[in-house]
């Protein structure tokens, strides 16, 4: 997967294919190395495909694999043309 370093703590997964926005992951070099081969980064990309997503699909430094959306994921959807996904919250609604 293509990942570009933006600054010391931000990594960009550039928009490609049907992605609507970039993926942005917050991590230092060690944490990003730890998830480089993790399906969680693919999930950040997957979330970027959703209709109405604004800005970027974000991953926090504690990101790891979850059902559909990664755990440690943030996605904001436009009220008018966006969607809501139960997978973006998970089973443990709190």
């Amino acid at each position: 997967m293509q990942i570009e370093q933006l600054d010391s703590y931000r990594w960009r997964i550039p928009r490609e294919g049907r992605m609507r926005v970039d993926g942005i992951v917050y991590a230092d070099e060690r944490l990003i190395a730890g998830v480089r081969d993790d399906p969680a980064l693919t999930q950040v990309k997957n979330v970027a495909h959703l209709p109405g997503i604004v800005g970027a699909s974000f991953g926090m430094p504690d990101i790891h694999w979850g059902y559909g959306f990664p755990i440690g994921g943030v996605a904001a959807m436009d009220e008018e043309d966006g969607v809501v996904s139960p997978g973006g919250v998970g089973y443990d609604i709190n």
Partner: peptide, 22 residues
């Protein structure tokens, strides 16, 4: 997932913010 208001590109927008493990 909650509706919250943010300024995006100079415009206030109501967004449904999904936070999963965030």
């Amino acid at each position: 997932a909650k509706f919250e208001t943010f300024t995006v590109e100079g415009r206030d927008r109501r967004l449904c913010v999904h936070r999963k493990g965030a």
